[in-house]
């Protein structure tokens, strides 16, 4: 995957509108926010995607797809997964000034997960993990299998991103009956947070239903929330700031399947100070990831 030279600085971004004329921040304002995007899924089209990040003034992206353990019914063989990981790591190392790497784990295979963490986080270029699959095995983040994994990640001061969702469904339908058996919801995140009260955890995807998700994590000061991957909602970030505080929100875009428009609008809809906005758009993520980045030789100016 050779993308060198395809990402060009654009002195003229050819905006069809003048953002300020529509009550939007200018590109200069966005650059000033020092945006760190925790949720990037664009490795397979990286060269095509990054100009959009340039255009919107994003400073750093976190790829969530650097490497993953095969499992959870996936169709990728172990050999293919390793080949993909090596390509992604090469890209990550080349892009280290702009991109950070997250790996996917499999909590049903604890020893292999710990080995992957040691190889790619403790002794490699990656800075954290994302949970998620396998969704059909009854091992959410509330399961004891996670305890040795979280202990090791805490030692490394790694980012811990938890895919989570209160999804309506089931029979009879409930607020969370649609969440799959291996899929964490914010209540599971809260259980994990109670066992590890000093370890920062990120409750991802706004817990799907942000009104309930925020309530679930509210008592646990070590849990931050991220809003990516869902439709935006006016007032959602105001609510989260009121209940959690601006220091407990981090920002992710979920590109390319979701737009900057979604997640920027969530933040710019809210009534907050410039400094609070800057915390949410990047400052909080810099704060919780500064140590591990610095150990990998990546300077972080909080």
């Amino acid at each position: 995957m050779d993308y060198a030279g395809t990402i060009k600085p654009m002195s003229d971004y050819n905006f069809a509108i003048k953002p300020e004329a529509y009550g939007l921040p200018s590109r200069e304002n966005l650059v000033d926010m020092r945006i760190w995007d925790l949720h990037y899924h664009g490795l397979s089209s990286h060269a095509e995607i990054m100009p959009y990040f340039d255009r919107m003034g994003v400073e750093r992206v976190f790829s969530l797809d650097i490497a993953r353990l095969r499992g959870g019914g996936g169709t990728v063989s172990a050999a293919e997964a390793e080949k993909n990981a090596q390509e992604n790591i090469a890209l990550l190392e080349k892009e280290h000034e702009r991109m950070s790497g997250i790996i996917r784990i499999d909590p049903t295979r604890v020893e292999e997960t710990l080995e992957l963490i040691d190889r790619l986080i403790a002794n490699g270029p990656c800075v954290g993990i994302k949970t998620g699959r396998p969704l059909d095995e009854p091992v959410t983040v509330a399961h004891p299998n996670y305890d040795p994994i979280i202990r090791r990640l805490a030692e490394l001061e790694a980012i811990i991103y938890i895919h989570s969702g209160y999804m309506v469904g089931g029979e009879p339908r409930t607020y969370y009956g649609g969440t799959r058996v291996g899929e964490a919801h914010p209540g599971h995140v809260a259980e994990l947070a109670a066992r590890f009260p000093d370890v920062p955890l990120i409750c991802g995807h706004q817990g799907t239903d942000w009104e309930l998700g925020v309530r679930a994590i509210r008592p646990h000061k070590n849990v931050l929330m991220e809003f990516s991957g869902m439709d935006p909602a006016s007032g959602a970030v105001d609510f989260a700031v009121k209940e959690l505080g601006a220091d407990r929100l981090v920002w992710g875009c979920h590109a390319p399947t979701r737009s900057f428009a979604n997640e920027l609008s969530n933040v710019y809809d809210s009534d907050m100070s410039r400094s609070q906005r800057k915390m949410i758009l990047g400052g909080n993520l810099r704060r919780i990831s500064a140590s591990i980045h610095r150990r990998k030789g990546i300077p972080v100016d909080i």
Binding site: A16, G23, A261, Y268
Partner: peptide
């Protein structure tokens, strides 16, 4: 889709995509 969605959402789309002024005006 305001006031459910933030009003800014649809406006940001015109900043995010490289469009011609004519395209933007046509849609807006």
């Amino acid at each position: 889709h305001f006031p459910y969605f933030p009003l800014e959402n649809s406006l940001f789309k015109f900043m995010e995509s490289p469009l011609s002024k004519k395209q933007a005006r046509t849609i807006m």
